[in-house]
Amino acid sequence: MKHTLAVLVENKPGVMARTSGLFSRRGFNIDSLSVGVTNDPDMSRMTIVVNGDDRVLDQVRKQLNKLINVIKIVDLPSNNSVERELVLIKVTVGVDTRSEIMQITDTFRAKIVDVGKDTLTIEVTGDEGKINAIIQLMDHFGIKEIARTGKTALIRGEK
């Protein structure tokens, strides 16, 4: 089962390595990991998607908590969180496919952020379902390159 963990860490060199190293060392599976500084410049927030049963997740949380640079861990409930990912997709275009791709881009409320002679680069944000759907569609036209940020998420409401 997939779980999304929000991990508040000190914004210091080496913290990323300590965290990701822990996962490989203990045999935990990471699906994605994204990180960025928070409104407090001394703190960073990591969003980690892990795959495993309850026992594995329990160990992940406890072992992460043992890292001195980890301040707080929250298990984000999938039914009560805003979850987003950003993807850049570079698609091959020809005269005959250009308008169809632009239509799909519109439908997905995505943006065209770069235009080349034979390519379009599309920026799309959304949850996992939306991202996978547009990638599948664009695959028909030929994806040249793709860059995903990995999931980032916040709990809904005031909490």
């Binding site: 026992r55 329990d58 160990q59 406890k62 072992q63 908590n65 043992k66």
Partner: peptide, 8 residues
Amino acid sequence: IDPAEIGK
């Protein structure tokens, strides 16, 4: 004293 040892 180490919660990670419980249930490991």
